[in-house]
Design a protein around this nucleic acid. Structure first.
Lengths: 346, 346
DNA sequence: TGAAAACCTGACATCGTTATCTGATGCTTG
DNA sequence: CAAGCATCAGATAACGATGTCAGGTTTTCA
């Protein structure tokens, strides 16, 4: 006797029922007597029957696959999002596929299209920096599958989103420094195309204005969200005749770079220089001094994203109806650690 | 006219050929005249035809899906491995599925089995700490699909592996400290079940013995590969009557914890305490002082793993033949940064 | 009590590919 | 020139599930 994997036919034969009845049991459909149901279930367990997803996918419209599409090397943020998604999808029988997209490349459309159409994806999760990439989104929309964007820069029709209020968060962070008495506060921006860059910057500006200050271009630098990119920015800022007494970096990795340069110059931290980051990745707690930052509730964001999708997917899909959508803004909070203090007297 | 996705039948009709001929063109099979082939290809491009993977998978034995199975929250290491795998698989038309396994749970077998059998996986990549998990491996072997273990503790028959010589690497690292003149060198171990923990520890012991020293249990601590786990370890080590002048942490995250505790106590680094890590994750360069560590060539490991699998998968599979295997040991090297120096005179 | 409604069950078609087999053509070769 | 052999092409049957529909049984209720 061959030892191949059992199919629904084997189960049907062994249980003395039709394949359709077995199918009904599998999918918890109506119209199966309790007795038959139990008998079939027993046989399924005995044979260790596992339905073939390819066959289910071919016939039905579900593939049980959800893709996480992101850009750039990903970084720690990406990994945590995936963890959150995984734990939620796991119980619902969905599997997570990951796809890194070079959003600058010219094969973006092709890649995403292959992914979506060939694999019959059930849904897509987008994280930075492709959350706001029109090419990617339009391919997904054309395929008419639900998607969630995590921390997008703009809301838009047709998809769901989860995010925190980045502008308000950057505002809070800057206010924290202002309250300490800082008046000359430098800023290191993220890359232009990245979601969040603009919002974080305007939150910073808003806070300054509330104190009657105008942003000074001399102490505003353009970084790239990476450690390395912020090194030269910091060096320039600290070499000014009148250097800032505090620096707001647009993310934690850049804040870590600020710390390194400051250490290298023998500055005492946070006395000579206060530093704040953004995101509260693990790194924030591991550098010295540990960073004051805004916590991205990554776990919660991933949870919310997964929940939205699961809700949409488990709802019976009506043919004509457009994909439902949801937008959720989660609360943020500033985590105060030891990288901030009142400015030293001159 | 309905706007549904074109199938092979539509292509055949439009090209005036049979579906089998179209199939032959798609798979680059023989027995199609150059003229017919070109005509079919033109039509495929026009219709933007994309073969349905579910159908291919159902009929054939390929699913074009490869899973990365790992345990624990993953960490930065995991993300980088995935990046490496992705870039290699992408060009070959394979997609990467990720699955986090709670290797302590009792549903491990069930989870892995579902993954492998329901989705018809083509191959699996295993990273720590499931590289050495017998339950997981035996399920995969029973399904007779190729797999690669990344940095396993032991080699074993039946699968492939890629790794560096962790024992030799830990040895090199310790020798570096000994050469600086350190004689009292503390060690913080990783968790028991984790691959690498034992190897790194024995490399450390070997190095000591080469200098005629015996490992001293008093300055050997048990950590858990996390930042937090190493904090109390370090506090104890630095509170000893005769504290170590250098500490070898079994990975970079724990080394970062050593730095934090040392900073907190006002020690001057690396003068009062030399610290080394292991893995060379991004963090290693972002802390202060940047860590001397052993570089895990993650990119290369992932590349090698992907290459092995692609080789196996593109080779025609003979029914009876067991899965081929390969074992590769990649070169490592010690990255010397500013966290190590000769011990200060007492 | 009779008819309608709800409940079970199964035969068979179907999804979009690839594999098998069979047939038709042209070209070599003894 | 008949036989043999590569080469090309297509009709048809899988793969393993779900959907459709039809038939039989039981329950409901006017």
């Amino acid at each position: 006797m061959a030892d191949r994997k059992p199919t629904i036919i084997d189960v049907a034969r062994a249980a003395g029922a039709s394949i359709k009845t077995v199918s009904r049991v599998m999918n918890n459909e109506r119209y199966v007597s309790a007795e038959t149901r139990e008998r079939v279930q027993r046989v399924m367990a005995e044979l260790q029957f596992q339905p073939n997803k390819s066959a289910q996918s071919l016939k039905g419209d579900k593939s049980y696959l959800i893709a996480h599409v992101y850009g750039d090397p990903g970084g720690p943020y990406t990994g945590q999002i995936q963890m959150g998604l995984l734990t939620r999808f796991r119980d619902q029988g969905y599997h997570l596929l990951i796809e890194e997209i070079d959003y600058r490349g010219d094969d973006v459309e092709d890649r995403v299209s292959k992914l979506v159409n060939q694999l019959n994806l059930d849904a897509v999760v987008l994280t930075a920096p492709v959350t706001d990439n029109d090419t990617v989104i339009s391919v997904i929309e054309r395929a008419n599958i639900p998607y969630v964007r995590v921390t997008p820069q703009h809301e838009r029709d047709g998809g769901s989103s989860v995010r925190i209020d980045e502008r308000a968060a950057a505002n809070d962070l800057t206010m924290h420094l202002l309250a300490f008495g800082h008046r000359r506060i430098g800023f290191i921006k993220g890359p232009e195309h990245h979601a969040g860059t603009r919002l974080r910057y305007s939150g910073y500006c808003d806070a300054l204005r509330e104190y009657g200050l105008e942003p000074d271009p001399e102490i505003i630098e353009q970084g790239g969200f990476t450690y390395r990119s912020a090194l030269p920015c910091t060096r320039r800022l600290l070499s000014l005749a009148e250097p800032p007494t505090a620096i707001v970096a647009s993310n934690d990795e850049m804040a870590a770079a600020v710390l390194s340069v400051a250490h290298d110059r023998g500055l005492s931290l946070p006395g000579d220089l206060s530093v704040v980051g953004f995101d509260d990745i693990e790194l924030a707690e591991m550098v010295w001094p540990p960073l004051t930052t805004v916590k991205q509730p990554i776990q919660e964001l991933a949870d919310a994203a997964a929940e939205i999708l699961v809700n949409i997917l488990t709802r019976k899909k009506q043919p004509g109806e457009p994909a439902p959508q949801a937008h959720r803004v989660l609360p943020h909070h500033v985590v105060i650690r030891r990288s901030t203090a009142p400015p030293a007297r001159r």
